[in-house]
Amino acid sequence: MNKLLIVARKELRGIVKTRNMLISVFFAVWFSVMTAPVVKTTGSAPIYAQFDNLIFYMVLMLGLFVAYLFTGLVFSNEKREGVIETLLCTPLSLRDLWLGKVVGVTIPAYLIALLTAGLITVIGNIGSPILVLPSPPVVFHIILVVPAFIAVAAGLMGFAQLMLGMRENRILNLVIFFLVFFPLFFARNAIRGYTLSWFVIGGLMALALILLAVIRYLTRYLSKERIVTSIA
């Protein structure tokens, strides 16, 4: 089996067994239960637009948040516990190691995002006189844009966690939480009532692809010496 897939499978299995997985499922259920019924009570915008906005925002937000939780598990812990040094002595290339972990994080985080999308759709339709489904651009968003952004988040955070020391990583985690997740949380008000067109979703997809290309370029700077000398 490809070494990248061996790493991805190991990380995936590891994540599934952790408490963070349960927490993530709980968040998916909790946010879906708390937000989906709101769609039916709103009167300020057409029900379809409200539903699209909610699913667009919640799926992306939860996907990124879960990626944040899982990335810490697979990158930080390995470095803190010193396992990474032994891994770097195996025939695994540094790029395969990084990418395997990114894939290992992206798959479960995306599954949580899909669970959120499914739950919001189901709960939103309970007791509804009409069937409300996401519009084609939002379906595209769920299928392609969300996993791309989860991969971007996992890739960037993983890269930073490999390159930076443990203290810098703790600071980085706080920065990400306050500069990324808080603004994202409040961004929901800004997009409420806004129609999500192909243009918007396409723009996001383009942004995700650009970010993936940037990360791919950044991985050239991954170095074993930097990783080893920044172990706690």
Partner: peptide, 26 residues
């Protein structure tokens, strides 16, 4: 290689640790 740190995952069983490394080594 056996470095100062054993290179073992605390969360995995003894068997699974060896299995993972065996796969990485082909």
């Amino acid at each position: 290689v056996l470095l100062e740190h054993d290179g073992l995952y605390n969360g995995l069983s003894a068997y699974d640790n060896l299995d993972y490394y065996a796969q990485l080594y082909g």
